[in-house]
Amino acid sequence: MFNPAEFCWNELMTRDLEGAKAFYSAVLGWTFTPHDDAGTYWIARKDDTPVAGLFLMTGDAFEGIPPHWFSYIATDDLDAAMKAATDAGAEVVRPPFDIDCYRIAILLDVTGAAIGLSQMRADPA
């Protein structure tokens, strides 16, 4: 599931978690489990296999941004991938940070498209 240079995770960024869960449950048969105590991130599952995340967009950081699907590409060396990306003209939106067993970063490619890069951490503490 985590192969470098391949898409490895997708998240729905939305302001309506309940509407999204109802829609994807009806259309795709997904079930959902909360990932955090605040209820702002949910894991979508198909036959108990995680298939996507749903993220509640709240606050000023998301003002003017429409709901959308956001994708991550796997890398085996996030620092090297970020250097290559910025050398190639990418703009860093959010530098690398740790979340669960992953280290991720968000950038804009040279066309302005937002993308996440992700590396599985060796120490998933």
Rank of each mutant, 00 (worst) to 15 (best):
L117V: 04
P66K: 03
G112C: 05
G89E: 02
W30D: 05
P50W: 10
R15C: 10
D98E: 11
T58Q: 11
M82C: 15
D60A: 13
N3Y: 04
F7N: 07
F97A: 14
A84K: 13
T58E: 10
M57S: 00
C101Q: 01
A20N: 01
T75S: 01
W69A: 06
K46D: 08
C101E: 11
D79T: 15
F70P: 04
I73E: 11
L117W: 07
N3M: 10
D16P: 08
F2I: 13
D100Q: 13
V27K: 08
P96F: 01
S25A: 15
I115E: 07
L107I: 09
F97G: 06
E11P: 07
R15T: 14
V51E: 03
C101M: 07
D16V: 02
T40D: 13
S25W: 09
A74D: 00
E63V: 07
Y102P: 01
M13V: 05
D100A: 15
A113N: 12
Y24M: 14
S71C: 02
I43M: 15
W9R: 11
H35C: 10
L107R: 00
A5L: 00
G112L: 03
A90I: 05
P67T: 08
F23H: 11
S25Q: 14
D60R: 03
M1W: 10
N10G: 02
Q119S: 09
A5P: 00
L54S: 01
Y72V: 12
F32L: 01
I43C: 12
A114P: 04
G59M: 02
P96I: 03
M57L: 10
D98N: 14
A122S: 10
I104G: 04
G39P: 02
D87P: 12
T33E: 10
A74V: 04
A114F: 06
Y72K: 02
F32S: 01
Y102C: 00
W30R: 10
K46S: 13
D47I: 10
F32P: 03
M13I: 11
H35D: 10
K21Q: 15
F62N: 04
K83M: 09
T31H: 11
D100G: 12
S71V: 06
E18I: 12
D36R: 08
R103T: 13
Y24S: 14
D123T: 14
P66E: 09
E91W: 06
A114R: 13
G29Y: 15
D79I: 11
A85K: 08
F70I: 00
D123S: 08
C8N: 04
D109Y: 01
T86F: 07
L17Q: 07
A44C: 11
V51C: 09
I43E: 08
V92M: 06
E6W: 07
M57C: 15
F23I: 09
M1K: 13
F62C: 00
P50L: 12
D109N: 14
A84H: 05
V92G: 09
E63L: 06
H35K: 12
D100H: 13
D123L: 13
L78M: 06
K21N: 02
F7R: 11
